[in-house]
Structures are given as C-alpha cells and as structure tokens.
Amino acid sequence: MQAFSLDRRLAAEFIGTAILLATVVGSGVMAETLSGGNVAIALLGNTIPTGAILYVLITMLGPVSGAHFNPAVTLAFSLHGDIAPRHAALYVAAQLAGGVVGVWLAHLMFDLTLLQISTKARFGAGQWVSEIVATAGLVLTIFATLRSRPEAIAQAVALFIVAAYWFTASTSFANPAVTIARALSDTFSGIRPQDVPAFIAAQIAGCILALALLRWLFAARRPA
C-alpha cells in the first residue's frame, strides 16, 4: 500500500469523521421528520445511512489513513504498536475537529441553528455497559477481520455498527469523537454534555477489554 504523508492522513481522518457525523446527525433529523413519531422507524432511518456511509468511507479513505475516524480505534492501534503516540494524538485532534464540523454541516443543510447543546439524556448503567460492549465489539471486529479477511474490513465494520445500533441500549456511539460532537446537536442523535464523560470512559474501557481479549484469542499456540 502506498505510504501517504502525515498531512494527507490527517486530512483523511478529518474529512471522514466530518462526513460520518454529518450522516449520523443529518439522517437523524430526516428520520425524525419523516417517521411521524414512530421511534423505531426513526432509528432505522438513522441506522441504515450510518452503516452505508461507514462502508463508503472505509473503502474510500482506508488506503490513505487507515480510516479510524474514532479516537478509541486510534488508541487501540497505538497500544498495539501500529501508530506512533504523537501521530495518534494528531489523529485524535483531526477526528474531534472533523466531528464538530460534520455536526455543523448537518445543521446548515437542514436550516437548523448552527450552535446547539443537546438536552437528550443518555444516562445509566445500561447505557454505560452498552458502550463498553459496542466499543469492545467494534475493536474486536476491526482487529480480527484484519487478521482473517482484511479485504472485508469495510463490510465487517459497517455491519457491526448497523447491528449494534439495535442490540445496545445506547444505540452504539462507540466513538469518543462522535460522542463529543453529538453533544453539540439538540436533535434525534444528541447526547447531553453531562452524559459525555461516562460514555467516553466506557468506550475506553471497551477498547482496553477488546485488546486483552484479542491478545488471548490470537495468542500463538504452545507446542504440545
């Protein structure tokens, strides 16, 4: 694979995260508007575009930056020794900035107030456990698929997130950049700022749990 310069990799992380958040928030606004108050239909309308854009973004930008778009994923690759800590910190900065810009872009497209603070409560043990499970599952999906079928990584990640939207109580944020950015949108996809720290703590815990599981699952066999 061609090695891209750091500035191009950071640009890919910024652009990819911005498009991801524009999709998550924009599709949430559209889904809530068209669903007639049916929350299940609204969630489905939010889920399908998110999975679809993840497939596109990973396929499109994976060769440039690795298509992390997620500080938890970048942390996992850094702890695994695949990205230098300084570069990982820059990746995270690009992801956070991209996430905020993506939310603002969604607001502009739907003629909403640009600067918002979410009032949507997402609090409680079920939510936190869900974020541990969702983030651990995402990191496991990425690393295990890279080992077994690297050409299928875009499909695997997109399908995991589509599923996790529905089998987790939190609807699978699984991403600190997404969590922070969604606190800046008082729409269907939002989260109150006071609920953000616990979500991020759960996501980091899920990342570390996944790395421990991967180390055990893929440990070299000892001779009999």
Results as ranks from 00 to 15, higher is better:
127 Q>T: 06
6 L>W: 13
106 A>I: 08
94 A>I: 00
95 Q>I: 09
202 A>P: 11
137 G>R: 00
121 A>S: 14
65 S>K: 01
155 Q>G: 13
83 I>T: 11
166 W>K: 01
190 G>K: 05
101 V>D: 01
63 P>R: 07
210 A>F: 12
190 G>E: 03
111 D>W: 07
51 G>K: 04
132 I>P: 06
68 H>S: 14
224 A>G: 02
222 R>S: 12
67 A>T: 08
177 A>Y: 03
110 F>T: 01
224 A>V: 08
167 F>R: 02
141 T>S: 02
69 F>P: 12
150 P>C: 05
17 T>L: 06
30 M>H: 12
21 L>Y: 01
133 V>A: 07
82 D>N: 15
132 I>V: 15
212 A>F: 14
8 R>P: 02
136 A>T: 06
2 Q>L: 11
45 G>D: 00
69 F>C: 12
154 A>P: 02
40 A>K: 02
192 R>I: 03
29 V>S: 08
203 Q>V: 04
179 T>N: 10
224 A>S: 10
201 A>P: 00
168 T>R: 04
94 A>C: 01
90 L>C: 05
28 G>T: 14
100 V>R: 01
73 V>D: 08
66 G>D: 08
114 L>V: 07
140 L>D: 03
74 T>M: 05
163 A>T: 12
213 L>F: 14
59 T>S: 14
51 G>E: 10
75 L>F: 14
